[in-house]
């Protein structure tokens, strides 16, 4: 009897869900030649952003990007919690042999250049190829270089989490400011400026800088956690 009731309830729920989803109508031809013409026209004429990919990722599908950043954050948290116990048993990481003086001196010179390149890539995300995710990954490789060159180079987890949280709050806060200025979540409310200028595109540079900091902090945390895993040689 119980099983029959459960089955009936599930069947009713399924039917209503199916009806709802059939009414949504995926793939209705709202645009004649697809959406590409709309994006290309809107990006240049109204948003004043020269990189169409960035305008789609941050503006038209900004909510999707917020989800992606959250997925990365959850993955990093899960990795940290899995490796937490192992890390605390061993303390320092085990190295086969230390780097030579050429590598240590050279990485000291290259580290600022790598960081500068990463910052350049995510600040110019709305002007040239690249963006927040790519720039963040470049910054994380800079920290990887320092961690490989120096055995006892340590990254403060407190600072990493502070930077990560602030960047996430900035992203969500800019989205909420869109509400306050009478629009929808993540809507553009700043003046869009002139095409091809550094200060153009409204909220797109702000969001991409936040994404860059967030990705850099998260991936640096991943590299640091994995390098300090017990028994890795």
């Amino acid at each position: 009897m119980k099983k029959v009731i459960v089955f009936l309830l599930l069947a009713t729920l399924g039917v209503y869900l199916a009806i709802t989803f059939f009414n949504i109508g995926f793939g209705d031809p709202h645009f004649v030649n697809g959406v590409k013409d709309f994006y290309l026209k809107e990006t240049v004429e109204n948003l004043h952003v020269s990189n169409t990919v960035t305008s789609i990722v941050v503006n038209f599908r900004g909510f999707d990007t917020l989800g992606e950043v959250t997925v990365l954050f959850l993955a990093v948290t899960a990795l940290g919690s899995i490796l937490y116990k192992k890390r605390h048993e061993v303390g320092a990481r085990s190295v086969l042999f230390s780097s030579s003086s050429v590598v240590t001196a050279g990485s000291k010179l290259l580290f600022p250049a790598v960081i500068l390149l990463g910052v350049y890539v995510f600040i110019h995300g709305h002007l040239s190829p690249g963006g927040g995710f790519q720039g963040g990954v470049i910054i994380a490789t800079g920290f990887l270089l320092m961690l490989l060159a120096y055995e006892n180079y340590s990254v403060s987890h407190t600072w990493l989490s502070i930077v990560e949280s602030l960047a996430g709050i900035t992203f969500a806060g800019v989205g909420l400011l869109g509400f306050m200025n009478g629009g929808t979540f993540l809507q553009n409310f700043l003046p869009t400026g002139v095409l091809n200028n550094l200060f153009s595109g409204g909220v797109i540079p702000i969001i991409y800088i936040a994404v860059g900091f967030k990705v850099a902090a998260e991936l640096t945390g991943v590299i640091y956690t994995v390098l300090h895993e017990k028994g890795v040689k």
Binding site: F97, S100, V103, G106, L109, L110, A113
Partner: peptide, 20 residues
């Protein structure tokens, strides 16, 4: 300038790791 620094350093690190 970046290539002049990074290319020899990485090659040196690879060769040394192989020797070790």
């Amino acid at each position: 300038i970046f290539i002049a620094f990074s290319n020899p350093i990485s090659s040196h690190a690879l060769a040394r790791a192989n020797y070790k």
